[in-house]
């Protein structure tokens, strides 16, 4: 266990080195998400009320999880599997869990860094600092774990890093437009609202927002946590079923 944690730390460090060394990963996983988020927030600041700004900003704190731990990680897992990097590591002292967990931890670190940037930016924007930082952190970490597991599933079904990233796009769009991150649930038609409640991003966004803004009843938060836990369990089972260490190409 202790060895596993040391290995996760070392492999997470490796991934961070590689993200910051690879210009396209740095752009796609770190900079571009922050730019898009910044653009959305400043547009809201100018054109919408405080309530919408608070909603959008806290939604973005959750939605940023779709970049490093989903899109980029699915690409990383897949391209490394196809280049036999994962198998080479698996032949070494690190366990399968430590190898996959290390990359997931690296992606989570990038995401938490982005969350931190938003938390700091929230002060001059008038939203203020998070009301309940431990709850916010718990929601962010659970979400990072969930989307890392989903990226393992998508990787297992994709034959190249590029295809894996493309395969994450529908998941990302569903989460962005149906879950309560950009638009509030009552902006959706009745039928879609029911579906939206079961998307993986919905409970995560609710917990993160509850942690940031406060004022949510703890029964509601527990309900969101329950849905999120079910999602984590399902994603873990699917990851176990579909993730592969041998390349898909012959």
């Amino acid at each position: 266990m202790k060895t596993d944690l040391a290995h996760v730390y070392r492999l997470a460090r490796l991934d961070l080195t590689l993200i910051f060394r690879n210009r396209s990963a740095l752009t796609n996983a770190v900079l571009m998400p922050l730019l898009v988020t910044g653009f959305l927030i400043f547009t809201a600041k100018r054109q919408a009320g405080d309530e919408q700004l608070r909603f959008l900003l806290t939604g973005q704190v959750a939605a940023l999880v779709l970049f490093a731990p989903l899109v980029n990680l699915a690409g990383f897992y897949t391209s490394r599997r196809e280049e036999l990097v994962l198998k080479r590591l698996l032949g070494g002292p690190a366990s399968a869990t430590a190898i996959l967990g290390g990359s997931a931890a690296g992606a989570a670190a990038v995401y938490l860094l982005q969350v931190l940037v938003l938390c700091v930016a929230a002060v001059p924007l008038g939203v203020g600092l998070p009301d309940n930082p431990p709850l916010l952190l718990a929601g962010a970490l659970a979400g990072a774990a969930l989307f890392s597991l989903l990226s393992m599933v998508i990787s297992g079904l994709s034959s190249s890093g590029e295809l894996a990233q493309i395969a994450t796009v529908p998941v990302m769009l569903l989460c962005l437009f149906l879950s309560p991150v950009v638009a509030p649930p009552d902006a959706l038609p009745e039928a879609l609202r029911a579906v939206a409640g079961y998307l993986p991003m919905t409970p995560m966004a609710e917990i993160v927002r509850a942690g940031f803004l406060g004022g949510t009843r703890w029964t509601e938060t527990m309900q969101s946590a329950g849905v999120l836990a079910v999602w984590v369990a399902v994603a873990a089972i699917l990851a176990r079923r579909y993730f592969r260490w041998d390349p898909r190409r012959g």
Partner: peptide
């Protein structure tokens, strides 16, 4: 110690 038939090294390191 294992050496696979194909290397699986990380090109950026």
């Amino acid at each position: 110690g294992i050496m696979l038939q194909e290397s699986g090294l990380i090109g950026d390191l």
